[in-house]
Simulated scan of single mutants.
Amino acid sequence: MVTGGFLPDSPAVHIAAIIVATGVIWLGSGWLEESAERLSAYYGLPAVVQGSIVVAVGSSFPELASVVFTALAGVFDMGVGSIVGSAIFNVLVIPALSALGSEGDLETNRTLVYKEAQFYMIAVSAVVVTFALAVIYVPVGDGRALAGEITRPLAAIPLLLYGLYLFIQWQDVSDHEAEAYDGEIALRREWTKLAAGLGLILVAVEQLVGSVDSLSATVGIPEFLAGVTIVAAATSLPDTLVSVRTARDDRALTSLGNVFGSNTFDLLVAIPVGVMLVGTLAVDFAVAVPMLGVLTLATVVLFAFLRTDLSLSNAESYVLLAAYVLFVVWIVAETAGVTGFLKTG
Rank of each mutant, 00 (worst) to 15 (best):
A12C: 04
V13C: 12
I15Q: 04
T22P: 00
G23W: 03
V24Y: 10
L27H: 14
L39S: 10
Y43A: 11
L45N: 02
A47V: 06
A47K: 14
G51T: 02
S52C: 09
V55K: 02
A56F: 05
G58F: 09
F61Q: 01
P62M: 08
V67P: 09
A71S: 15
A87T: 12
I88Q: 05
F89D: 00
F89R: 01
A96C: 07
S98R: 10
E103C: 03
D105F: 06
L106C: 09
E107A: 08
N109F: 11
K115P: 00
Q118V: 15
Q118G: 01
F119E: 11
I122M: 07
A123Y: 01
V124P: 00
V135I: 15
V135L: 08
V135E: 01
I136G: 00
G141P: 11
R144T: 03
A147T: 08
G148M: 09
E149V: 11
R152Y: 04
A155K: 12
A155S: 12
A156H: 05
L160E: 06
L160Q: 07
L161S: 06
L161A: 10
L161R: 08
Y165Q: 06
L166F: 03
Q171N: 13
V173G: 01
A180F: 07
I185H: 14
T192H: 02
A196D: 00
V203S: 01
V205P: 10
G210E: 02
S211Q: 02
D213Q: 14
L215Y: 04
T218Q: 13
I221G: 03
P222D: 09
E223L: 07
F224L: 15
G227T: 03
G227F: 01
T229A: 13
I230K: 08
V231C: 05
P238W: 03
T240S: 10
L241G: 04
V242L: 13
S243D: 07
D249F: 04
D249Y: 05
R251E: 11
A252F: 06
L253G: 02
N258S: 15
L267C: 03
L268T: 04
T280M: 03
L281C: 06
V283C: 06
V287S: 12
A288Q: 09
V289W: 13
L292G: 14
T299D: 07
V301S: 04
V301N: 02
S311F: 03
Y318N: 11
A323W: 02
E334Y: 07
F341G: 15
G345T: 05
